[in-house]
């Protein structure tokens, strides 16, 4: 009935493998989401007006609907439009799209938050657009957006649990399976919660550390 230590030891390799899938999907989904989100934000800010409008709809659609429904649509609806994906690919694609929508809004808020004068100063000393973006805007945004980016990335980790519903072999699915096998749900999910909690706390501790390292770059009073 209960989860004894032997069981944990017995299934530790399974759990570790599933944890690996979770972390891999999380990191890959976040990295891709960050990148695609950045491209969307740049296109919306610096591209033509119509592109901004064209990208508004999909971003708001993603942000306005549950991740679960998006995943269902992609995984179960995909084959009907010739998009048959295995669960891991569908999961990663879903995470990327979902993350890109949210990250793009964060990037956009970063563009807005940088004082116009900092860009003008760069123009005045002759930096061109790419140089300004690379040397001034991006580094400034990094420190400005760090807390919200860390939050979003933590959210991404928690969303990976939802992928268990389309049977991606990640942590939540592995623990649920064990729970079913030994009817030890409470113990299983309690330990599962602790694992996620530890990961989230580690991630936010890392974020706080990075923030404290960057704190001296905080905006000077002007």
């Amino acid at each position: 009935m209960t989860f004894d230590l032997d069981l944990i030891v017995l299934y530790l390799p399974d759990i570790v493998r599933a944890l690996g899938v979770t972390i891999l999907l999380w990191l890959a989904g976040s990295a891709l989401g960050l990148l695609v989100g950045f491209l969307i934000a740049v296109a919306r800010r610096y591209g033509p007006r119509w592109l901004d409008w064209a990208l508004l709809a999909p971003v708001e659609l993603i942000r306005g609907t549950p991740f679960l429904v998006q995943i269902f649509l992609l995984y179960y609806g995909g084959p009907f439009i010739g998009l048959s994906l295995d669960s891991i690919t569908a999961g990663l694609l879903g995470l990327t799209i979902y993350g890109a929508a949210y990250y793009s809004e964060l990037w956009r808020s970063g563009f807005v938050a940088i004082p116009k004068g900092h860009v003008e100063a760069a123009q005045c000393v002759g930096l061109n657009r790419t140089q300004t973006l690379r040397r001034i805007i991006l580094p400034e945004m990094t420190m400005l957006l760090l807390p919200s980016m860390v939050n979003m990335t933590i959210l991404m980790l928690k969303e990976t649990a939802i992928l268990s519903i389309i049977s991606v072999p990640e942590l939540t699915l592995a623990v649920s399976a064990l729970g079913t096998k030994y009817y030890a749900f409470v113990e299983g999910f309690a330990i599962l919660a602790l694992v996620y909690w530890a990961l989230v706390e580690a991630c936010s501790a890392l974020g706080r550390y990075a923030e404290s390292r960057l704190s001296k770059y905080r905006f000077a009073v002007s």
Binding site: K158, T160, A161, I165, T172, F189, A190, A193, Y196
Partner: peptide, 22 residues
């Protein structure tokens, strides 16, 4: 705050769903 923000809602729901009857 840390626990409920630090774990997926899905896991919380599963835990509570099985915990309450116990």
């Amino acid at each position: 705050v840390s626990f409920f923000r630090g774990t997926p809602l899905l896991v919380q729901l599963l835990l509570i769903y099985y915990l309450l009857p116990q």
